[in-house]
């Protein structure tokens, strides 16, 4: 099986289980507090790691290229409260223009 299908099936199954664990199994028992704290912080930590690796990650090297121009333009779009699709389009267009020029 390809890496794509392994990922799709595993992530799909895990997500179904994560969403169902409360409504199907637990009823009214709350998550223990030692677990609740780290779980709440997983999303910001992982998303920040994604921002960094997607912006400057290369093949075992930090690479500064047209992506940074795109991220900068995207950040401006975010600051102007643009919808997420507009942020994506602005970032891609800015990087494409930067590549044409350089």
């Amino acid at each position: 099986m390809s890496a794509v299908w392994i990922s799709v099936i595993a992530v799909g199954a895990a997500t179904v289980a994560l969403k169902a664990v409360g409504p199907v199994l637990l009823g009214q028992r709350p998550l223990p507090s030692w677990l609740a704290g780290p779980v709440a912080l997983l999303a910001p930590a992982v998303l920040a790691a994604f921002v960094v690796t997607a912006a400057v990650g290369g093949d075992r090297a930090i690479v500064a290229d047209a992506r940074l121009v795109g991220v900068g333009a995207g950040a401006i779009a975010i600051a102007l409260r643009a919808p997420i699709l507009a942020v994506v389009v602005v970032a891609a267009a800015a990087a494409a223009v930067a590549r044409l020029i350089t």
Binding site: P44, F50, A54, V71, I78, A91, A95, A96, V97
Partner: peptide, 17 residues
């Protein structure tokens, strides 16, 4: 060529904030 690789970090930034 269309800059879609730059769409990823911008998207994750929009999700992070």
């Amino acid at each position: 060529r269309l800059g879609l690789d730059a769409a990823f970090p911008a998207l994750f930034l929009a999700l992070l904030l």
